[in-house]
C-alpha cells in the first residue's frame, strides 16, 4: 500500500515537472523571435530567377551574404555593383551572395538583374515571408553569415565596397 502510494506520488510529480518544463521552457522559445547578431541565421528555401531552389543550410561551410533589396529602393540599386564586384573577387574562396528580393514581380526583377548583369543568385520572396522572418525594416538590409551559419554582422542601409570587403574577410578568416 505504502509503496504503491509513493509510486503514484512520483508519477504525479513527474507529470507536473514535464508540464512545468514545457511552461517555463516555452518562455525562452518565444523570446526574441527576430534573429540578431550572434544568432544562427534562420534557414529558408527560395527559388531564384532561373527557377533553381536555394536553401541556406546547403551553404553551411561557406560564408554567405544575405541581402534584402528591391528595385524600387535607390540605395539597394546603387550598392548592387559593389556587391557584384566583391562577389567576383571572393567567389573562388567559396563565398556567395543570396540577394532576396522584396516581393516584386519576376519580370521587374529580371529586367533589372539583366540590366546590371548581376551573376549571383537573386531569390524571389513573393509574399515577403522571409523578410518578415528576419525582421527587415529598412532597405537594404544585409546579413553576413559565417561558415557555421551564425550571423556575424548586420547592416541596414547602403554599403560601400571596402565595408563589404572588410566583412567578407572576417567571414573568411
Amino acid at each position: 500500500m505504502g509503496k504503491h502510494r509513493t509510486w503514484i506520488q512520483i508519477a504525479i510529480l513527474l507529470v507536473l515537472v514535464i508540464v512545468g518544463a514545457f511552461a517555463v521552457g516555452g518562455s525562452f522559445a518565444s523570446r526574441s523571435p527576430l534573429p540578431v547578431v550572434g544568432d544562427k541565421a534562420p534557414d529558408f528555401t527560395l527559388t531564384d530567377l532561373d527557377g533553381q531552389t536555394h536553401q541556406l543550410s546547403e551553404y553551411r561551410g561557406k560564408p554567405v551574404v544575405i541581402n534584402f533589396w528591391g528595385t524600387f529602393c535607390p540605395p539597394c540599386r546603387d550598392e548592387m555593383p559593389a556587391i557584384q564586384a566583391q562577389y567576383d573577387k571572393w567567389r573562388q574562396q567559396g563565398f556567395t551572395v543570396l540577394a532576396v528580393n522584396l516581393g516584386e514581380n519576376k519580370v521587374t526583377v529580371d529586367s533589372f538583374v539583366k540590366q546590371l548583369k548581376l551573376t549571383f543568385p537573386v531569390l524571389l520572396d513573393p509574399d515577403m515571408d522571409l523578410s518578415r522572418k528576419y525582421g527587415v525594416k529598412l532597405y537594404p538590409t544585409t546579413y553576413f553569415v559565417d561558415k557555421s551559419g551564425k550571423i556575424e554582422a548586420k547592416q541596414e542601409g547602403q554599403m560601400e565596397q571596402d565595408f563589404i570587403e572588410r566583412n567578407i574577410m572576417k567571414l573568411l578568416e
Binding site: G70, T71, F72, P74, R77, L102, G103, E104, N105, V107, T108, S111, F112, Q115
Partner: peptide, 30 residues
Amino acid sequence: TLKSFFPEFGLDDKGLPMTKSNKPLAPAFV
C-alpha cells in the same frame, strides 16, 4: 514579350527607368 515591368514608373537620378514602389500606382510595361 514582356521585357520589363515597372509598377510605379519613374526615373532614377541617372535618368534610368525604375519603379518607385512595389505598388501598381503608375504601371509601365516594356
